[in-house]
């Protein structure tokens, strides 16, 4: 285990059923794997039936699980249209957004199309994460994320999960 002290606040947004929860748990595990404290918040219940969902992850010396307006370092948007409801959370000058979108814009990747090509639309979340790992502002590197993903993936999804993460990273 490589120790790396991290202070980062991450928002993951999308729709119920897009794998926001899995991505949250994966990032939680990566943070702890590198020797950090983590506290995160998830959406459960009725909103998960296709409604807007958002998770918040706070890595470092934090006591509470929510992110205040203008405090997020990173937003990972699994649906482009959900970004507008979470954008206010981003740090004004230094925050970075990674978005799953067919439109050409900054830090956008068509993760849905790539995952469809890989044969499973449910791994678009990992394509986006792999893509974010390429960026210097993202607190985790690809190989660490990959190691942890291997550890927590259910055996029958292991290969397709790693494939999706790698595809995103290799864009």
């Amino acid at each position: 285990m490589t120790k790396k002290k991290i202070d980062s606040q991450i928002v993951i947004c999308g729709r119920g059923g897009q794998g926001v929860l899995f991505l949250t748990r994966l990032i939680d595990e990566v943070a702890v794997h590198q020797g950090n404290n983590v506290i995160s918040s998830e959406t459960h219940g009725m909103a998960m039936r296709g409604g807007s969902v958002a998770s918040y992850i706070r890595i470092g010396d934090y006591a509470s699980p929510l992110i205040r307006t203008g405090q997020a370092d990173i937003i990972l948007a699994l649906t482009d249209s959900e970004l507008q409801f979470n954008n206010h959370l981003l740090k004004k000058d230094t925050g970075t957004v990674f978005v799953n979108s067919p439109n050409k814009k900054n830090n956008a990747v068509n993760a849905t199309r790539i995952s469809k090509d890989l044969g499973s639309v449910v791994v678009a979340n990992l394509v986006l994460l792999g893509y974010a790992c390429k960026d210097d502002t993202f607190p985790f590197d690809f190989s660490t994320v990959k190691t942890v993903l291997k550890k927590i993936s259910p055996p029958r999804f292991l290969d397709s999960n790693i494939e999706a993460l790698t595809a995103g990273y290799q864009i």
Partner: peptide, 30 residues
């Protein structure tokens, strides 16, 4: 935290800077 922050500032006699508003809306569950 966004609800508490301005109240805490007022109580401690501090000013709260301008806070961008969250856009209302979002997809309803179905």
């Amino acid at each position: 935290p966004d609800v508490i922050y301005p109240a805490l500032n007022t109580f401690l006699e501090r000013k709260t800077g301008k806070i961008p508003k969250a856009k209302p809306g979002g997809q309803r569950p179905s």
